[in-house]
Amino acid sequence: MRTNTVGGRMFDIINYILLSVFAIVTVIPFIYVIAGSFATSTELASRAFFLIPKTFSLNAYQYIFSTDTLFKSGLVSVYVTVVGTVVNLLFTTTMAYALSRRHLIGRNTVLNLVVFSMVFGGGMIPTFLVVKGLGMLDSLWAMIIPGAINAFNLIIIKNFFQELPPSLLESASIDGCTDLGIFWRIVLPLSKPVLATFALFYAVGHWNDFFSALLYINDSAKWPLQVILQQFVMMSQGTIGDASSMDPTFVKPPDQSVKMAVIVVSSIPIMLVYPWLQKYFVKGVMVGAVKG
């Protein structure tokens, strides 16, 4: 274990305090959002900030859950998130591994093109026309394939692969492993923390994505959760002035709290993914794997 000096202990104490303070400061507004989602509209209007509502109200949730669409769209979101993340990891890690081998001919050209595509893009309409041309419109694949690889993630994963001890790969190839075998049996198992991290990044991206649904999905039965929830927010929002295209006599849902309930409903499921993935972040995973 590490040395336990006085200085070390002082450091520990300060560290614990600092981290606790930061954790509290970051999480309090979210508690406000949760509290707000259970508050009445009158209370939200009259109290600027609170962590416990005076009157407990389920109106916002009743409103949101009044439709079975929510459940259906939740399934769509889960499907897109799970399948999408698997596709992401598959596409990204394979490419990243190939690019991590420095001797590969053409590697630099491909890498240059990848970096180039990070800053230069064709834009919304040309991309739409490609997706349309591939016949993917109105298919859930349209929410998965066009974002199969994030260039940023690709480069970082490639970097992680590059950092693996070369001797390991060397010895494996001397043992008669093909590159496919090295990738599957050595590189991936050694990269669990990295894979977990990028699985999380990709999953959160899919879960929060509604723009590709807007562009590519016309069928309301395939709306993901975020689209449905945003509709709730739009409906609950008082519209202002002449800019409103909602009819003035339209019956609006009761509560400002709907906005907050929407955040709770949309974020809690995906937030639960991280604590579950944390077991892959334990130190020494790699060393264990190497020795095993």
Partner: peptide, 8 residues
Amino acid sequence: SISACCLA
């Protein structure tokens, strides 16, 4: 930034 569209 919000999205989507629907249709029968």
